[in-house]
Nucleic acid binder design. Structure first.
Lengths: 209, 209
DNA sequence: CGGGCGATTGACTTTCGTCAACGCGTGTGG
DNA sequence: CCACACGCGTTGACGAAAGTCAATCGCCCG
């Protein structure tokens, strides 16, 4: 997480597992820096279609989508008991006018979120189910590594349905693919516990034919 | 387009049809406001996978994805002879520190781009090919309407392959679906000229089962 | 200890991708 | 000025990938 942001954290807020940090349509007020725990974000459109749009862990920033319209566009749900730093947006605005560094960090955070979504679009639009799942696992692994956790041995906090929604496939397909990867000795999966046995082969799978 | 931005437009730049406004990897320098013409943006990832990530017309803002990393992440290609307003980013930074209005507009633009991409993710992740194409046509129609052009009678500037890439399907599927919609009397399509005959049925198609 | 959510697995169906042939227009060079 | 080539689009036949529907299982949590 951008360090300059830290100063903005006026308060901490705890969110119970399963509870919402904010919900789609709520008036926008603050950005949130995840201190600990795990979140998913999801959209709903007017026709009731919904989709998980991302997973967020310590150091990630939530709520950026609400700036434009004055309302949160997404719902952020805690997938385990979590703590966030509350950064009131008016304060962010004011301080970033005084501090070019902070300004740049905010812009960078917004821009990086855009870039992240390009990646998801690429994944959804141009990859097969197995490539998507492999990419997903590798991405999780990388993010755990960066935070000092084991990149090859971790807990999934989300359900198969969450993963499926995020990756644009059904939960059955997620389950089948997990089983397949396990049979091939590439990963070991028991419930939500994942152990990456052969990350190289996983990388190979994630690549185009 | 946000009106306050207009003041930032130091110069205009012309881009010939088929030419790049900027390319993935170029050092980031400016944001671009489309004055006239039509652009597509596309990504490439390390493995050579690529995808069209958006279409941009008069009033839209290009280049936002470059702020975070100092390099443009996308390639922006003109699909017809086009004109853009060049807004040097250092200038944007400076002025938006002096003007809360401008600051808010910039943040809003970034945030809206994030929200737009959520919509694309929803489209790619949870809709069938026919729903995607119907949604795409309706979206184009809406954007032409907002700009004072006919919402029911317009030219596509992009190829079937561009559309297919953007919508996560093959160009053959795009072509077949166009034919189907035409047979059903919902649209009339001759080459790149589109006439929406029955927007209500198109809307019905775009909705979930 | 039992209930219920989440996960797995199977059988079958559907959608869409792939491969391939052909058609239409347009611009260019002989 | 015509012919042809090339990019773009259409259409068809076929197959593969993933969705749907359904039954069953296994963990947790209460």
């Amino acid at each position: 997480m951008p360090s300059t942001f830290e100063k903005l954290a006026s308060t901490l807020r705890h969110v119970r597992s399963g509870g919402p940090l904010f919900s789609s349509g709520d008036p926008f007020g603050s950005l949130y820096g995840v201190h600990g725990g795990f979140f998913k974000t999801s959209t709903v459109d007017g026709d009731g279609r919904w989709q998980v749009t991302g997973f967020f862990m310590a150091g990630d920033l939530l709520g950026l989508d609400g700036i434009g319209s004055g309302r949160y566009q997404l719902t952020a749900t805690a997938l385990e008991d979590s703590v966030v730093a509350v950064m009131p947006y008016p304060l962010v605005e004011t301080l970033s006018r005084e501090s070019p560094d902070l300004q740049r960090e905010l812009h960078a955070a917004l821009s990086r979120e855009i870039a992240r979504e390009h990646g998801v679009m690429l994944l959804l639009g141009s990859m097969h189910a197995e490539q998507r799942l492999a990419t997903f696992l590798l991405n999780l692994s990388l993010r755990f590594r960066r935070r000092g956790y084991s990149p090859s041995d971790f807990q999934l906090r989300m359900t198969r349905a969450d993963i499926g929604s995020y990756l644009g496939m059904t939960l059955e397909t997620v389950s089948r693919l997990f089983s397949r990867l396990q049979h091939e000795g590439i990963v070991e999966i028991r419930q939500r516990h994942v152990r990456l046995i052969d990350a190289d082969r996983l990388r190979a799978i994630s690549e185009p034919a």
